[in-house]
Design a protein around this nucleic acid. Structure first.
Ligand SMILES: [Zn+2]
Length: 359
DNA sequence: AGCCTTTGACCAGCG
DNA sequence: TCGCTGGTCAAAGGC
């Protein structure tokens, strides 16, 4: 991706023109459908993915990232990797970093969003952090396996953040089966889970493609917020579970108002609760909105880690009041949630582990 | 009407 | 220069 000045995501004039010119289509031959199944798995993505962090399912990546504990621990707790406990290693940035942070003029655009905050902490390349400590706290704040969310693992790299094995439906991106509509429509997701990886933002899918390194198709999403060019790539397996999520850029706005009703997850807001945790309530609340923190975080990620906290705190979240339509949505969501929960429970048995790998 | 997903095609980077 | 690949566009259609 390419970065871009500030108009990232926006149709570039040149492009537009070009496209306009070709309207009638010529249809050469690009066959998107040429699905290739991971043959050389990892070929291109390897570098990027190599470094990753696997987190117990139920944890929200965002939370992770936002969690001060987590961050601080990453930074301060270098320790050897123990077999039983996770450790994090910070990879050095890989090539593809680009970002997009239009808003922060000073920062170069780059890609990463949630993750950014994550990696930003442990930027020392090659360093290994012990996650023992932050885990507990995270769990606590997150509320462990949140219903409906099946985050089984998260991968994070300095470049892009990757969340792996998120539960299906977490993302509002459509499941393979086609039930997607429920999830996506109007930014409401059926599972509501909005995706753990989700951060409580609204996303619009703008493309899908079979990526060579991955077995599953990758979906591309953009933040629907005006002026926000954050993007994310989501990969889902045949079951609809999110296997990987990569965020790019940082949000320059607050999360959409969640409609949160006790006991019910909300659609867009569902994302807040994806992990059974409400961003607004947690420590991350304040600013945790991935957006803000991320945007800046990633900026600092290359450099120092000190500022993370500031950024993390700087966002103020409005606890949104409930909207009217909220109820109807809530109902709808409830329904979805139930489904999600069911599946979640079945998946509960998944291994909960944190694995960090470095290149 | 508005917003979203789907989907085929185009574009750009890279080897 | 060519082909591959990832990313994006935008028309079409759904809700
Ligand atoms: Zn945004």
């Amino acid at each position: 991706m390419e970065f871009v000045t500030d108009s990232f995501g926006v149709q570039r004039p040149s492009l537009t023109e070009r496209r306009a010119g070709r309207v009638g289509f010529d249809a050469p031959a690009t066959n998107t459908s040429g699905v290739r199944v991971a043959d050389d798995f990892h070929s291109s993505s390897l570098e990027i993915r190599a470094p990753y962090l696997t987190i117990p399912y139920g944890l929200s990546p965002t939370m992770l990232l936002d969690s001060p504990m987590f961050l601080s621990n990453l930074q301060d707790q270098p320790s050897p990797t123990t077999g039983s406990f996770p450790s994090v290693q910070t990879p050095q940035r890989s090539k593809s970093l680009e970002g997009i942070n239009p808003q922060s003029s000073d920062s170069k655009p780059r890609m990463e969003s949630i993750p950014p905050s994550f990696p930003s902490r442990g930027n020392q390349p090659g360093s290994t952090m012990d996650l023992h400590q932050f885990l507990p706290s995270m769990e606590a704040s997150v509320g462990f396996p949140p219903q409906g969310s099946n985050l089984s693992s998260i991968k994070a790299s300095t470049d892009d953040v990757e969340l792996s094995d998120l539960c299906r439906g977490n993302d509002r991106s459509p499941p393979p089966d086609g039930s997607q509509d429920e999830e996506n429509r109007g930014g409401n997701s059926s599972f509501g889970l909005g995706g753990l990886a989700e951060d409580g933002y609204n996303w619009r899918k703008y493309g899908q493609k079979q990526v060579k390194g991955s077995e599953y198709p990758r979906s591309y999403y953009k933040c629907t917020n005006l002026n926000c060019q954050v993007k994310k790539k989501v990969e889902r397996n045949h079951e609809g579970q999110v296997t990987e999520i990569i965020y790019k850029g940082g949000h320059n706005h607050q999360k959409p108002l969640p409609i949160r009703r006790p006991g019910f997850p909300s659609s867009s807001s569902s994302e807040f609760q994806v992990e059974g945790h409400d961003w607004r309530n947690a420590n991350d609340l304040e600013g945790a909105p991935p957006h803000a923190s991320i945007a800046e975080l990633d900026v600092s990620s290359n450099i120092s880690n000190d500022e993370d906290e500031d950024q993390v705190t700087h966002g103020s979240t409005s606890l949104g009041c409930d909207g009217e339509d909220e109820e109807s949505e809530a109902k709808k969501r409830k329904h979805d949630v139930c489904a999600a929960e069911m599946s979640a429970s079945s998946r509960a048995a998944r291994e909960q582990k944190v694995v960090v790998q470095t290149t």
